[in-house]
Amino acid sequence: MSKKVIIVGGGVAGMQAALSLKGQGIDSVIVEKSDRLGGKLCDWHKLFPTFTPASEVLGPLKEAVERAGVEVRTGAEAERIAPDSVLLKSGERLSADAVVVCSGFDLFDARIKEEYGYGIYDNVYTTADIERMMNEGAVALPGGHAPRRIAFLHCVGSRDEKVGQRHCSRVCCITGVKQAMEMKTLFPQCEVYNFYMDIRMFGPGYEELYRQAQEEYNIHFVRGRISEASPTFDGRLQIKAEDTLVGRPLKMSVDMLVLIIGMRAGESNGRFAQCPGVGCASNGFLAPADLFSGSVLSPVEGVFYAGTVTAPKNVGESMSEGAYAALRVAEYLGARS
């Protein structure tokens, strides 16, 4: 009898895991809670650091999954996991020979940082809003006119004790740099300021993009965290920060404030961790067996991880983990048969 693997979550990590399993002759079922494959990438416009349209990555991947004949169950949310089964929210239990958890991350809810006024003032946005507006082809202020000044704020919902998110989300610095450049391209007359605590450019081509943003796009980088945003009489926002490099307070009014929101642990993780042996790290992401050769293994035999379910990662890293998890699954199933 052929072995069956259940993949929880049909983002890039889950899709790549299914494809790599298929390549080794192993059938899998993708269980996806939303109504479509692709995960967060469905909502992104262009990908850093190359400005490649997200659809160019997602399209071929989806086609390959379809061509490979992988069974996909959308609208199916996994509630509990075990090495030999997955319990769906509907109550249905699917049996399996191995389970790969690829359920990804959640976006930080910017309303929690009340002092920045997201959801209170019309001209406060998140990086996810900007991606959506770019996809809809219309970045504009509520009145329809072009912004003259935009501020980006790094680390919203990351590296912040106050909201219980101590970790660095890694991809948001480069997202902020990418979007600052996109804004400058859309509105060449606009002044763009990025307020940061540290600039973390971890990937290939990222530091180069940062430098290009500074030198060629005239993006101003100010080291200091915005303390609060308040409305002005003319419907703009006043922001305050310390320009820590000159040791003086700084204030300015802007037309748009973009909050660079971080990645937080997926809300399913807590329920998955009820499987004996499975556990979360202190930041809520699922903790792999180890952070080296066992990065895609859970502490429980038969349960595997791939992608951002274990930590913030970019697309390439998430897909590589999908392929690596498939390899480890094949080894595991081979040893048992």
Partner: peptide
């Protein structure tokens, strides 16, 4: 003491940057 970017006249700063854009690459 605040640096007030609404009041400061940035004309000269822009002129300087235009002549030496590399200065903005300062980290």
């Amino acid at each position: 003491r605040a640096v007030n970017l609404d009041r400061n006249d940035l004309t000269a700063a822009r002129r300087i940057i235009r002549q030496m854009p590399e200065l903005q690459a300062c980290i």
